[in-house]
Design a protein around this nucleic acid. Structure first.
Lengths: 336, 336
DNA sequence: TTGTATGCGTTATCAT
DNA sequence: ATGATAACGCATACAA
């Protein structure tokens, strides 16, 4: 049976008020009292009950991080940094994965579940903007979006400039003389923001170079997984003329694509150059090492946690759109 | 201002008791009442306050998963499955990473922090058995250990048979004719259970084959990371005679080791065969694909969650030692 | 089957 | 600076 404030108060022969003050680090308490209380706390091995504290204050000290899949390297790297950044501000992080399930996303956001347990949500969504709009009416819990970027101003956002990032990747391939540049990750069937923006950057770069956009060269990928990359690349390699470069919308897609190229008896980068987005560590050790656009998960995490903390403290702060920097890393897979 | 039980009761013109019964799915409530209550709940958009419920019941419905680093593929795969398994039993999962920091581990376990927020802890420890012993006296929260296996009987454990797993990997290399088999991941300086057991299996397999154990061939690796694998392999390749195979204590070490072999101008598996443990997806797409011992994170997670749930329901259940199955997957990196 | 009343452990208001 | 006490929202013992 854990000790309570009352027990400590009785032991130290002071009021619970005083004990509470000591525990919460309140200033107006005499040194003699404090010592007496501290001694009692130590003797009884007292620890504040977080549930009671939460009931009283309305704060849990917990954030939720919602991602499609925690075991996707980009998201686990993000989680690592979010947990670290949150710890700095004395928040702890609960992780939930939606598994690409829209229904589950909605459930988590609307709190049909138990969302109230969190002070705020960091949400890396698959949902479209329209769905998000709809949800906003039902949820009132502080929310920061990661990786979307529609600039509609109603939500806090932290994300890179997806159009520019995609443009940079393709521009690099163009600069190296590639002219038949395919893309894996476009999802024409569903209007997600990220693939749309990256597709826009891809096409923009091609047009700037005076090249035509060949619809056959843009392949969908449902989950940005290695398997999706493998499948899509295999299809691309059967085209005539064959692409001489592939821009993958994620590094995981790129890993799958590279393996597909080898299995087809071709070489990366000699026959087909490949570049991805995310800059996961895996790509720095693969053979060949993977060119990629780096997203700085540490920056994204710090900003996101800072925003959510601000919004928790004041729900009416103006939403901010934070653009995280990105960096092109040229490695072996694109001839670097 | 969220609606409370009282509000719902007033609205439906019934007592809070009845509302509570309906919400908790209590059986003895007339259909007419139930409908009236349900309607009121809907109109007021009522949701139970988890903090109040926790304060009353002593249950939070939350588990903590403590791992060294969430962005290590094995741990993120484990986290994925733990979250899934926990959801089946209506538990949610908070993830904390110790970052190889013993002090942090102790803090989390002893609840110097806020551990009381969880109903139980799933703990993948770095600590030694001795430290764990010490901690047990201070913590009383249900605990299940993952990946340790000392069979001391005081804790619930879920882990593979590390000795056998290492033995299987090395036996495979021996069967393929390798005779100079090195190991990366032994940590002779610190008495962690996992590396000790894997080292034991490694040496045992060598001796059974009538080979000598060469201490130069066993290299330490602090974090089981790609970087550690790269460094250790680079050193191994400078030895004379050079190893003709390397058994890595994790797949991540193996990925680094493979890259080191290539950078040394050698071939995997022709010059040096490589095998790891964990069977992460990355190894199935790498070139060459990585032979590995698979750990079945789904099984481990299900068992661990089942155990912790049992212990939460009855703190006095007898501790169980659950041995998870492992499977050898031979792929290109060892000539498969 | 349903209503009333108490307490879970804290924080915060109001006195002193 | 400190003490007494009232909520916070829920679940349940006890009554009816």
């Amino acid at each position: 049976m854990p000790a309570t404030l009352r027990d400590v108060a009785a032991r130290a022969d002071v009021s619970v008020r005083t004990v509470s003050n000591v525990v919460s680090g309140y200033t107006h308490v005499s040194e003699r009292m404090r010592q007496r209380v501290l001694a009692a706390i130590d003797e009884l091995d007292y620890r504040p009950n977080p549930a009671a504290r939460t009931l009283r204050t309305g704060r849990t000290g917990m954030l939720a991080l919602i991602v499609p899949e925690i075991d996707v390297p980009y998201f686990s790297a993000l989680a690592r940094d979010v947990i670290t950044a949150a710890a700095e501000l004395d928040y702890r992080v609960m992780i939930d994965q939606t598994g690409h399930d829209h229904e589950r996303e909605r459930e988590l956001l609307t709190g049909d579940d138990r969302t109230m347990l969190f002070d705020g949500i960091l949400f890396s969504p698959l949902v479209t903007q329209a769905e998000l709009l709809e949800m906003d009416s039902t949820t009132r819990i502080p929310l920061v979006l990661l990786g979307e970027h529609q600039f509609d101003g109603r939500f806090d956002h932290v994300a890179i400039d997806n159009v520019q990032a995609a443009h940079d990747a393709v521009a690099h391939l163009l600069a190296r003389g590639h002219t038949r540049i395919a893309a894996i990750g476009a999802q024409p069937l569903e209007p997600y923001a990220t693939p749309q923006q990256r597709t826009a950057g891809y096409e923009q770069a091609l047009r700037e170079a005076g090249l035509e956009v060949d619809p056959d060269y843009a392949r969908a990928a449902a989950h940005y997984s290695r398997a999706d990359g493998y499948t899509a690349a295999t299809e691309l390699l059967r085209l005539d003329p064959r692409p001489d470069a592939i821009f993958c919308f994620s590094d995981l897609l790129a890993m799958g694509a590279m393996r597909a190229v080898f299995d087809a008896g071709l070489s990366v980068p000699d026959d087909v150059a490949i570049i991805g987005i995310d800059d996961i560590e895996e790509g720095r050790y693969s053979r060949p090492s993977l060119s990629s656009v780096s997203l700085d998960t540490a920056f994204i995490s710090e900003q996101a946690v800072a925003r959510i903390a601000a919004r928790i403290d004041d729900p009416d702060v103006e939403p901010e759109q934070i653009v995280a920097p990105h960096t092109l890393h040229v490695r072996e897979s694109s001839g670097g």
